[in-house]
């Protein structure tokens, strides 16, 4: 009897819609796009600040416009998704052994949130907000 294995191809364009865990992954990847755009806008603001008061005022007008505010709210939501989804997998990449035992994964996750909170407070103080 001759062999004739059948190959089922995975769709290159719709595979991520086929399972909940793939949809979560794509959302997590998509969050990078918003974080990158936000970073770009922020860098642009710094460049405008160096170019003079008029350029800075123009940038400020842009980010405080309704479209600018909507984008920033969206970027903030995706930044939260980005943070939560990456911090969740920290114990998988960061495996610290002390003697025979491993440092508990949840401790590592909490430490990351602690550092995030600490850095955020410092930034808010430097910005004169807190």
């Amino acid at each position: 009897m001759s062999r004739n294995p059948y190959v089922r191809k995975m769709s290159k364009t719709t595979w991520f819609l086929t399972h909940g865990r793939y949809r979560s992954y794509i959302l997590h990847e998509l969050s990078s796009f918003f974080v990158a755009i936000y970073t770009g806008i922020l860098i642009m603001g710094l460049l405008r600040l160096g170019s003079g008061p008029e350029e800075w005022a123009g940038w400020l007008e842009g980010v405080t416009s309704p479209a600018g505010i909507v984008f920033h709210l969206l970027a903030f939501a995706f930044a939260i998704i980005h943070t939560v989804s990456w911090f969740k997998v920290v114990p998988q990449a960061m495996r610290i052994q002390r003697g025979e035992d491993f440092v508990p994964g949840q401790l590592l996750v909490r430490a990351h949130y602690g550092v995030l909170a600490g850095v955020s407070v410092v930034v808010l103080i430097l910005a004169g907000i807190a």
Partner: peptide, 18 residues
Amino acid sequence: SFVGACSQVCPKDVDPAG
């Protein structure tokens, strides 16, 4: 690209993604 599906389905908790 760290989808992590391998670790979620592993019946022996090997955690290949990790």
